[in-house]
Each structure stands twice: as structure tokens, then as C-alpha cells.
């Protein structure tokens, strides 16, 4: 696919869907996520955030889950490149 870009899950814009390409190096966090069924190749979408912008809710495999930004930033995802207005 053309124009794919990687970023961390926490940087993923609201409403965007992406595919997980890199799980956290932190083994403990990684095993926790895997137990919830979050692994490489899983499609995940950021759907909404809590009033203080953290944590955010993600939809994957039909399940809604809450992740803190500090945990989500350790997950690498690949998503379509869209209007990159800021830079």
C-alpha cells in the first residue's frame, strides 16, 4: 500500500484505524495486552477520549478498551497517511 506511515498508538488521530506493527518492549505490559487479545496485526481504532484527554478508548476486534496514553505510546501502529497539515 502506498503512503503508509507508522506512529505510536497514542499519536493516532481520533477516529483513525491502524494496524499494530510493534508491541511494547516492556514484557509485563506486552503480556497484559496479549491477554486482552491485543497483538501484532490486530486492527485498532481510537474512538474517543476521556474528558481530561487521557485515557482513550480503542476499538479492536469488536471490543472497546481503555488505555492510558503512557501505555499506548509504547505500541507502534501503521496507518494511512492523511493530510499532514502540521508539518
Amino acid at each position: 500500500m502506498k503512503g503508509n506511515t507508522t506512529c505510536t498508538l497514542s499519536e493516532l488521530p481520533l477516529g483513525e484505524e491502524a494496524v499494530i506493527t510493534g508491541m511494547p518492549k516492556d514484557e509485563y505490559l506486552c503480556s497484559k495486552l496479549v491477554q486482552y487479545g491485543i497483538t501484532n496485526k490486530v486492527r485498532i481504532k481510537k474512538v474517543y477520549c476521556a474528558p481530561l484527554s487521557d485515557p482513550c478508548a480503542y476499538l479492536y476486534r469488536g471490543t472497546l478498551i481503555s488505555l492510558r496514553n503512557s501505555d499506548a505510546e509504547k505500541i507502534i501502529v501503521s496507518c494511512h497517511k492523511k493530510r499532514n497539515r502540521h508539518n
Partner: peptide, 23 residues
């Protein structure tokens, strides 16, 4: 065979946990 099963819940949450109304 399914559609996105969480649409209703997400729509509700976007109000119930929104910046404006959540707290």
C-alpha cells in the same frame, strides 16, 4: 455475519464521557 456491533455504545459514550458533559 455482523456489522460493527459497538456503534450504539460508542455513540452513547461520545456524549456520556465527552469533555463537555462527561464530568
Amino acid at each position: 455475519c455482523s456489522s460493527d456491533s459497538q456503534i450504539g455504545t460508542i455513540r452513547t459514550d461520545k456524549v456520556i464521557t465527552s469533555k463537555k458533559y462527561g464530568i
